[in-house]
Amino acid sequence: MNSVRTVNEGVLTNRLWGKVWILLLLFIGVLFSALFSVCEGLGNSSISAILAAALHPSGSQLGTVLQEVRIPRALIGVIVGACLGLSGVLLQTMTRNRLADVGIFGLNAGASFAVVLGISLFGMTSVSALTWMGLLGSLAAGACVYLMAVSAPGRASPTTITLAGAALTMLLSSLTHALLVLDQPMLSQVLFWISGSLAGRSMHALLVTLPFLAAGALIAVGMVRALALMEFEDDVAEGLGQRVLWMRLAAGLAVILLAGGCVALAGPVGFLGLMTPHLGRWLVGSSMPWLLSYSACLGALVLVWADVAARTVLQPSELPIGVLTALIGAPFLIHVARRGGIRS
């Protein structure tokens, strides 16, 4: 298609200070949400007592709970949310497909299938092994979707790719279910990997996964300018001096690092990566540095609150967080579909 892209404008596009202030506000919002997530449901301990216990976790019960459970959980929520927000922007930009999401494209399903495979067939238990499995899985699924996209005659439309992703997801999740049906005792142990949750993840898991996520995020930030050009058609981008193939490979690598790392850390969390770029674009338009930072902040914010809801709604049992993000995020898919403009 050789249409001329008009610059996407958001509510705040022409207000520099507005963008700065709102971003600051979002950032503070993330901090407070994380703080709330840490403190929520700790009985009647005062904030100062919690802070004291957090700073000097010398054996007190509260300190242990904070250190072992609450703080890692809130941190993981923030980091996974931000990474998914970033990956959504990357994926939607590099595929020029407003429906792109690591969940919709089947990357999550690939990663969770690989992780379940690792647990059931190879008896893996260590976090780092599972992280690698998650990365491999999302890499394989991503490669499948990419091959589908390039091998379609002409160029596959966003809807075609979305459908291919949906089919891939169905296939992989039925294979995952197959492993589970054959190994029923494992079910409760890995139900987590099927629907995503922040429950019971340790600081250790975060530390193991962090390098992958950080690498992905760094690549994303490093190629901000190139990303802005990837919004154009390939020949235009080439004319502007981009090495399109390399850029696409780099962006793909970043997406896979982010998505695989997130699955290893929190299980498959769908639709967050679809939702936040749309929200961000509504606010700041498609100016890439802003969009990336807004999307990351929004992702963190949504995920932390989704997590708070996940553990309070059904007390004492806990809801998988993927359930909540799907319930919040799927309407965005409907919105995009209804608006008709699948491409921006």
């Binding site: 429906l99 969940g103 919709i104 809807t159 979305t162 459908l163 949906a166 769908g270 639709f271 993927g322 359930v323 909540l324 799907a326 319930l327 799927a330 309407p331 898919l333 409907i334 995009v336 579909a337 209804r338 699948i342």
Partner: peptide, 13 residues
């Protein structure tokens, strides 16, 4: 199709 995928995802959730 797209709305169907979305509703399917919500139903799965």
């Amino acid at each position: 199709v797209l709305v169907g995928i979305a509703i399917g995802a919500m139903a799965a959730a």
